[in-house]
């Protein structure tokens, strides 16, 4: 589960970076690219949040509130 979450975060970072490139580019094209990438990034973030909540609810993952030994 952890790996899935991290993979989604990486994709989010990727689309955020792509939005930045769009912003630097400017003009019609850049603005379009920026907006589209930001839409992907917010969509994925909402999905990730829902996924975390749901799998926490189902007990697939445990929140960090239980102390786990590190070794």
């Amino acid at each position: 589960m952890g790996y899935i979450v991290i993979a989604i975060i990486v994709v989010i970072l990727f689309s955020l970076g792509s939005a930045l490139i769009g912003m630097v580019k400017g003009g019609k094209e850049g603005s379009e690219k920026m907006f589209k990438s930001l839409r992907i990034r917010i969509g994925l973030s909402v999905f990730l949040f829902a996924l975390l909540m749901f799998s926490g609810f189902m007990g697939w993952i445990e929140p960090n509130t239980t102390m786990l030994p590190t070794q």
Partner: peptide, 20 residues
């Protein structure tokens, strides 16, 4: 963009501080 960035930082915090 700044706001989206701050938002993603929080998501990272939420995942790594509170979850995994």
């Amino acid at each position: 963009w700044y706001w989206h960035f701050v938002d993603v930082v929080w998501l990272g915090l939420f995942v790594f501080v509170y979850w995994i």
